[in-house]
């Protein structure tokens, strides 16, 4: 499909140069079209956030210029604290997702017959069949003061007083993040476990390696690229999905996504762009570190 240009050696005429027919050249470009589209409408807009973030703010829009006002607005206000705080809770969500979700990936790979594995994993996309906003919104009646959770806990006699801290707090945002993003650590863990051949488990049994050492010394290093990718996904989305703090969070539960959308509602476009640029920088740094550490293209090697 895609051929590299032939080079001329020893003055012998390269055969491939005998004028490629038009439809073949068109086909070659068709295969590149998706990438060109992604560069034009994804890579360039994301890179341009840096440029737009230093534009001057006007009443309803912005104009070309150079000012760091937007960054001042971000770094010298409560926004920075909120942002760092949301990083902390996002990390907590990543940890919870990993602890709950990764064992499932291992279990599916290890103990379920090959043919059924994909179908079991498919179970975890069922929640996506309903819009995230509805799923998040439905958590409100579950977590509120006289909601499902408190009622259940009171009836079981575990608590006397309803826990009010369940909703409109950081806790509820973390719960929302885990509910929304848990499937992703299972998917990426599942892909990552492709790098762990099944016989490894038998070898470990044969050598008498216990489950903990097996996990730490064998599974974790092999599955690291996938686990890392899944964790970055959850971490960044925890920072960037405005919906969660918007619906579940209380005062102070403000993440980067919410800052950006609030800035857009307030017509402060340079601030929104500054936040986007900061998020992109965070993401790129994480992905770059990940790539240096584990070579992230490995995630897809089982597929190619």
């Amino acid at each position: 499909m895609v051929s590299s240009p032939t080079n001329v050696t020893n003055g012998v005429r390269p055969v491939g140069s005998m004028q490629t027919p038009l439809h073949e050249r068109l086909a070659l470009w068709a295969f590149r079209a998706p990438l060109i589209f992604m560069v034009l409408f994804f890579a360039i807009p994301m890179a341009m956030t840096v440029v737009f973030s230093v534009f001057e703010r006007t009443m309803f829009w912005m104009e070309p210029g150079f000012t760091l006002t937007a960054y001042e607005n971000f770094f010298f206000s409560a926004r920075l604290g909120n942002f760092l705080n949301s990083m902390k809770y996002s990390l907590i969500s990543v940890a919870i997702c990993f602890v709950i979700g990764f064992p499932i990936s291992v279990f599916v790979r290890k103990s379920i017959p090959q043919v059924a594995q994909h179908r079991v994993v498919l179970l975890f996309i069922l929640p996506f069949m309903v819009s995230e906003i509805i799923r998040v919104f439905a958590l409100r009646p579950v977590l509120q003061r006289n909601g499902l959770m408190n009622t259940a806990l009171t009836n079981m006699g575990i608590i006397d007083e309803p826990i009010t801290a369940l909703l409109y707090t950081h806790t509820s945002v973390v719960i929302g993040e885990v509910m929304s993003f848990l499937p992703f650590i299972i998917f990426s863990g599942f892909l990552a476990m492709e790098a762990v051949p099944k016989f490894i488990f038998e070898v470990c049994d044969d050598l008498g390696v216990g489950p903990w050492r097996r996990f730490k010394d064998v599974i974790l290093p092999l599955a690291a690229p996938g686990i890392f990718a899944g964790s970055v996904f959850i971490f960044v989305n925890g920072l960037g999905v405005a919906l969660l703090p918007n619906i579940l969070g209380g005062a102070g539960a403000v993440n980067a996504g919410l800052i950006a959308t609030q800035a857009i509602s307030a017509l402060d476009f340079p601030l929104a762009m500054a936040v986007s640029a900061i998020m992109m920088a965070t993401l790129m740094t994480l992905l770059w570190i990940g790539h240096k550490l584990f070579d992230l293209t490995k995630i897809l090697t089982p597929l190619s």
């Binding site: 998706p34 990438l35 992604m38 560069v39 409408f41 994804f42 890579a43 360039i44 807009p45 994301m46 341009m48 956030t49 737009f52 970055v232 996904f233 960044v236 989305n237 920072l239 960037g240 999905v241 405005a242 919906l243 980067a256 996504g257 919410l258 950006a260 959308t261 800035a263 857009i264 476009f269 929104a272 762009m273 936040v275 986007s276 998020m279 992109m280 993401l283 992905l287």
Partner: peptide
């Protein structure tokens, strides 16, 4: 990178960046 990166860009960030662009 180009095809998987959008997964990692949160909705509000992607939305804002595209909106302004």
């Amino acid at each position: 990178f180009l095809l998987l990166a959008p997964l990692f860009v949160p909705p509000d960030i992607l939305g804002s960046a595209l909106l302004v662009s």
